[in-house]
Design a protein around this nucleic acid. Sequence first.
DNA 1: GGAGGGATGAAAAACAGGTGAAACCTCCTG
DNA 2: CAGGAGGTTTCACCTGTTTTTCATCCCTCC
Lengths: 234, 234
Amino acid sequence: MPLRILLVEDEPELAGAIEVVLRAHHHVVDHVAEGLGAWSLLGSDLASYDLLILDWMLPGLSGPELCRRVRGAGLTVPVLMLTALADTSHRVQGLDAGADDYLSKPFAMEELLARIRALQRRQPSYRDPLLRAGSYVLDPAEGCLTIEQEGGRTRIVMSAKELQLMAYFMEHPRQIIPGSRLRSRLWSLEEDPISNVVAAQVRLLRRRLASHGLPSPIETVPSKGYRFDPEPEP
Amino acid sequence: MPLRILLVEDEPELAGAIEVVLRAHHHVVDHVAEGLGAWSLLGSDLASYDLLILDWMLPGLSGPELCRRVRGAGLTVPVLMLTALADTSHRVQGLDAGADDYLSKPFAMEELLARIRALQRRQPSYRDPLLRAGSYVLDPAEGCLTIEQEGGRTRIVMSAKELQLMAYFMEHPRQIIPGSRLRSRLWSLEEDPISNVVAAQVRLLRRRLASHGLPSPIETVPSKGYRFDPEPEP
DNA sequence: GGAGGGATGAAAAACAGGTGAAACCTCCTG
DNA sequence: CAGGAGGTTTCACCTGTTTTTCATCCCTCC
């Protein structure tokens, strides 16, 4: 599975080599040469990384310092530290700063890849909690819905709006939800009030469920709204 | 689960970045650039928000000031404050103003998301309470009225206006209510006074009750108004 | 007995939602 | 950078329901 990796390394040759290898293994790599640049990327960029590879010695902001900042900001992203200094006291310093692993130069690319794999396995990576209602389980992180029926489970990948809608329904099971409420909760204000986005999107959601052979759990209560029933009583 | 979020931030770049990230996580985001706009948005109950993200420095109305107003108005919505000022005295000021959390710029989007998740672990949805008068129980959420008689209960699904009318009667049992009051309470402002909407709607309400075999609890007091009696004395 | 509020049924208007096609947008790919 | 695929929204049109109006009738109170 491809990872989004931020590589912070000031030696151009090594950096280039690492980039090539990682890309060859289908990872997406951003490279910066110094610590402050990395920090501002982490601080404001839209990207979120699956892995940070930090050189120990960096202009601007050292590897351990950057690592401490990252941890201080509450980030749980795995950090792999690179260094020319192999002795134990440095190793300890690095790990104390919050790094997850530590690799001494020179190293074989194979070892780097192996350690990346190891970090990924160990990664408990915080995920949004699942949302459950009856036999429906929604996973916002994965962007999918699974339904447990007799005879197994069905997994449905959904679009963003479908997920929002489904989540709202699942948070309010069996309640009648007026279309106007959906509109005000799930769509931002500026849109013109004479539109039928809600009806249209409800339709798409129903169609998506139907396309997997599921009976629609969303009922229309005429001129009142919609009602989601996680498992209709007989 | 998706949240409805109001973002008050005057730096366009940062605001844009936050918006994109929040949307990517399936939240619904409204963005205003200054405090007064935010305040008027919060005042109009077009939308109710699950979270406010306030910049510290804002044109018009500062973040802490807005936050104080929000709390002063009795709103319990979680507030997350953003600021370039990291020192403790500001942190304390922000939290004293009623903010629930505090984030210093620059911050990683991951941290913002983590804090939002943390703030968000709170109360589940609640239902609006039932309205009771004598043997009549009105459930606004379900849009129905139940009557407990000897021999069981009757459940009547009603239309919106019927519910409004019934609710008004049930809130003023045994009182004589002039038609003109119903008109001004239940119908927005001066519609043309030569209409008999009220009479017509009262009729529909009576008919609906009658169609379920119930004696009408709504009596007409000639040239004075209507009176609702939750259970007529013999 | 006539004025006025209310009752009544039918008809009209307004409304909410369902539907398919088409327009848009954004992201991805060649 | 063009083209394509999805996803999302709009549009025009259709349905059924709710709400209001209208014309008429009824009753009560001065």
